[in-house]
Amino acid sequence: MVERATLQRVAPFLAYLFFIFLADMLGRLGHALHELRWLYALKIGVVLGLLLYWRRSYTELASFALGARAIAVALMTGTVVFLLWICLDTDWMSIGKADGFDPRNDGRIEWSLVLLRIAGAALVVPVMEELFWRSFLLRWLDAADFLARAPRLASARAFVVSVLLFGIEHNLWLAGMVAGAAYTVLYMRSGSLWSPILAHGVTNGVLGLWIISGGHWNYW
């Protein structure tokens, strides 16, 4: 039972990482970034397919038990994380250089790609990542039977390790750690995974709008 629950929360995340690895390998083999833009649609499609296939097994998502205050806090947290994200971007705060995602073709924005990118980042990625980082890893670091572990009981060790790893997963590692800490606190205090999912979705959604408005393609 525990092994199956683990698979259901880890597999979508690993599928997402696989496509990142695949894009990197194809790039190293000489494929231009422009040729690989279709991979994002495939990546999000596969992740969404896995989430939908196992949707009935995600007991932590069965009920949206957030009151008005909790929703407001999540929305505010997501917005603050966005503001910090675009500020914490100096050289020493980043790992390598992100290729980004430029949706323009001959100088014109392909809006189908933009809408897909924003929808994937704001609606699919937050669910996938919060299921892995918060619901699974944060609790699993303290107890193999992680589903029986209340979020508020997460140890300092689990908090630090999960936040550090979440940060390193991102090119902007410091911004990633700040985001990871904020989402984790929301989860621990509310006891509902919907709280960090909502905040995460706001961060990614507002970031997408900001990227489009100013052409900050490297943030994608």
Rank of each mutant, 00 (worst) to 15 (best):
A65K: 14
M25D: 13
T203D: 09
W194C: 04
A41N: 06
G208S: 08
V206G: 06
L138S: 08
D106K: 13
L193N: 03
I20S: 07
L75R: 07
W85E: 04
I20W: 11
L66V: 09
G27E: 10
W54L: 03
M188L: 01
I212W: 13
L131V: 06
G120V: 08
L207E: 10
L33I: 09
W85M: 03
G100N: 09
K97Q: 08
M25Q: 15
Y53E: 05
D89M: 01
W111R: 01
I211E: 05
V163G: 03
I95V: 07
R134Y: 01
L172G: 02
V47N: 06
V124W: 05
Y40K: 14
V206F: 12
L7D: 10
V47G: 03
V114K: 08
H216D: 11
D99S: 13
M25E: 14
V2L: 12
R117N: 02
F18L: 15
V47Q: 05
L137P: 08
S155M: 08
S155L: 05
F146Q: 09
Y187N: 03
H31L: 15
A182G: 00
A181M: 09
V47M: 06
T77C: 10
R69G: 02
K97C: 00
L147P: 02
F132P: 07
S213N: 14
F21D: 10
L51K: 05
F18W: 12
A32Q: 14
F64W: 11
H216P: 03
V178T: 08
M76G: 15
Y183V: 00
D89K: 10
G67V: 11
L75D: 10
V161H: 00
V80E: 05
R69C: 03
L36V: 10
A150Y: 05
L83G: 07
L75V: 11
Y53D: 07
F13P: 04
W210A: 15
W220R: 06
N105I: 13
G167P: 05
N171V: 14
I109T: 14
V160N: 06
W173G: 08
M188Q: 12
A41S: 12
R108Y: 06
G27T: 10
V46A: 15
W133F: 13
P151Q: 06
Y183G: 01
G30N: 13
H34N: 11
A74E: 07
A23G: 14
